[in-house]
């Protein structure tokens, strides 16, 4: 494996009241690698993603321990200026709900331009750059559509616009926090294919956060399974899927209904059996 782009060491995140959302986790993401973090809601996967660039509001998040090394630089101790240079520019995000992540009163083009102006002041022809990223994510007729407002886009197109915005800064690492949960299956497949294609084209790393093992299988090189703030299993995707070691991983894979394998009842997770 090549040198790690992101190296998280012993990360612990505690909230006011002593709730440990993330408990001593370590993982790394190499350059050009796609890593998936899988877990149910409440497992601490989104909190981990937000903590990477210190996006967690403090308070209520307090007592963050450990180290987050991005290119050997600890982001947890970096000053505001340094972290701002990383946010968006080096590590970009796309979130679950595209309709709430976009500002409804500005056009799509304006919102992408904002990101370009801030992070890439060297770009002269901003309009051409917006058209380029919009066509990169498969929006037809980008020269016209950039004048549209978010409500004129469908859910899938809004998510494409979010990805375009993230790509406009040419990030090294894209953190995709449940990017397809709010979308239909067909659109979900399109977005995952798009991410795959973009990853190949631009050689960026992707950290995919999801609760659904189904979308992980064709996408990620490695999987990290989180349960109650801890990493319970980690390994190459196909290995984990075929031969899960931890009972929680097994349960999480089993509860997904599969086409053509009709069961009397769906398997649910018996938490008492997971220690």
């Amino acid at each position: 494996m090549t040198q790690a782009l992101l190296n998280v060491k012993n990360l612990t995140i505690e909230f006011q009241g002593g709730n440990k959302a993330v408990d001593d986790i370590s993982f790394s993401v190499a350059k050009g690698e796609a890593v998936a973090v899988v877990g149910e809601s409440g497992s601490g996967k989104s909190v981990t993603a937000l903590a990477l660039t210190r996006l967690l509001p403090q308070p209520p998040a307090c007592a963050i321990g450990g180290r987050i090394l991005y290119r050997e630089k600890n982001l947890l101790t970096a000053n505001n200026e340094e972290i701002r240079a990383v946010r968006g520019k080096e590590i970009a995000y796309i979130f679950q709900e595209p309709s709430t992540s976009l500002n409804p009163v500005f056009s799509i083009g304006y919102q992408i331009a904002e990101a370009i102006k801030l992070h890439r002041p060297e770009v002269k022809d901003i309009n051409a750059e917006i058209v380029r990223v919009l066509s990169l994510v498969g929006i037809r007729n980008p020269g016209q559509r950039l004048k549209d407002y978010p409500h004129q886009f469908s859910g899938g197109m809004q998510q494409r616009a979010m990805i375009a915005m993230a790509l406009a800064c040419q990030p090294q690492l894209l953190v995709a926090d449940e990017p397809t949960t709010a979308l239909d299956v067909t659109i979900q497949a399109q977005i995952i294919d798009l991410l795959k294609e973009l990853k190949q084209k631009t050689d960026m790393s992707v950290l995919l956060i999801t609760h659904n093992f189904g979308i992980v299988s064709g996408f990620a090189d490695r999987v990290i399974v989180m349960f109650r703030g801890k990493i319970v299993e980690e390994g190459p995707t196909q290995e984990v899927l075929k031969n899960p070691q931890h009972p929680y991983t097994k349960a999480l894979i089993e509860c997904i209904p599969q086409l053509g394998q009709k069961k009397e009842r769906l398997t649910t997770i018996d938490y008492s059996k997971i220690v």
Binding site: S41, C255, I256, P257, L266, T268
Partner: peptide, 11 residues
């Protein structure tokens, strides 16, 4: 819903 919760509700 999450896949694990989805299974519970379907059942």
């Amino acid at each position: 819903l999450d896949v694990s919760v989805q299974a519970q509700i379907v059942n």
